[in-house]
Design a protein around this nucleic acid. Structure first.
Lengths: 218, 218
DNA sequence: GTATGTGAAGTAATTCACAGCT
DNA sequence: AGCTGTGAATTACTTCACATAC
């Protein structure tokens, strides 16, 4: 089947969010143009993105919001919930443990890991923190396929190796380093400083006016 | 002058980080192929990215690391430091206030704002938290051009409006909502759940094997 | 010989424009 | 008439391939 651009998936997530908002307002029909505008793109883009996965609307009418929403949810694999492990209970890690948005989006961080013995055994926001030595067993016991890395740069590659060995299939990495990893494990990087550097560039060179760049590569 | 793709800027940030690592190792020359491999792309990409901004290397030799690094730093506007304001002292906001990476990358969060009176007046990680009513004056007094939004979805647009009114020129928004904003203000969104949804999609549809997608958007 | 810089070629993503359905 | 779905056209990005410089 056709390869799906990452940007298409990102936009689908956005459409899904916008559709939820519309649903809460009690609206039940939307046109591709409206949905596009609310999502920061245009109607053609919406239609082309959806076309990767089938037909969703009615010509002359638009999209039934509840149906489109549930079909996108399914496409994204967001029917059902995901168990997630988080490694590195520092400032950012702790914040993510209590990040309401994850739970609302059906991601449950159900276990944390750290090398710091003073954290091991404690609970943060109801999530128990275990020692790294217990990682492999815990991951397989609890059916965890996703992990979030919030350890310092120097340990990120090591932790990634341990995670892959433990059977993790998808990693969201916040350490600003290029982790190399087996091809069958999905890796996404979020580099917060890099985002600010992007802003720094555009502030510095107003001549390359490039607003509305977003969404976007994260 | 030519419009610079956002991805080029993202990669420049990555090159900069990799160059720092090489410098620490005492290496002082690098080829585009090496730099590309270490940055998760290839030599041609490196050379083309740099070509937007001039000539940086010596044919038959490669790039002098210290020089390339300092020129990229300048291009990104990362010579000198940036004062940053942070609005929304919740879990994530608090974590970002003490995020070591920002300081190291020359972003100084020098002031925080919240509507919660119990937080106003306190210091978090040495950063004083003020009431929203003081925002406009503080921003102009302290020469702050960048702001980070970590407020709940419902207040994000309002806060963005206040920031723009106060003279902020670049916003990094963590609230999962499409903020609409004057064209001369740069906006970047980071949506943590959206990143996980991308992983969810690829885990669910192994047939669209699309690893090494990263960096990257968002 | 080796590696940069860059037009030319190739690939991918977006937008156009309209046929087809309601 | 209105809006989707989709080939065709366009635009943007990446890779190729080689002339050029050390």
């Amino acid at each position: 089947m056709k390869k799906i651009p990452d940007m298409v998936i990102r936009r689908l997530s956005t459409y899904s969010r916008v559709l939820s908002d519309l649903m809460e307002k009690g609206i039940d029909l939307v046109s591709s143009d409206e949905l596009g505008k609310l999502s920061g793109c245009n109607g053609t883009q919406v239609r082309k993105d959806l076309a990767y996965f089938g037909q969703f609307g009615t010509r002359g009418v638009g999209y039934r919001i509840s149906e489109l929403k549930s079909r996108i949810t399914k496409i994204l694999g967001m029917d059902g919930r995901w168990n997630v492990a988080l490694i590195g209970i520092g400032n950012l890690g702790t914040a993510l443990l209590s990040h309401e948005g994850f739970r609302r989006h059906k991601f449950d961080i159900i276990i944390g890991f750290d090398v710091d013995k003073s954290k091991v055994g404690k609970k943060f926001n109801g999530v128990e923190i275990k020692d790294m030595s217990e990682l492999k067993r815990a991951i397989s016991e609890k059916d965890i396929k996703m992990a979030i890395i919030t350890v310092p740069v120097q340990s990120a590659q090591t932790v990634a190796n341990i995670l892959v060995d433990a059977g993790i299939k998808a990693i969201l990495n916040f350490a600003p380093v290029n982790i190399s990893i087996s091809k069958d494990v999905f890796l996404k990087n979020v580099d917060l400083s890099l985002e600010l550097e992007g802003l720094s560039f555009f502030l510095t060179h107003n001549e390359y006016q490039n607003n509305e760049f977003n969404g976007s590569y994260g």
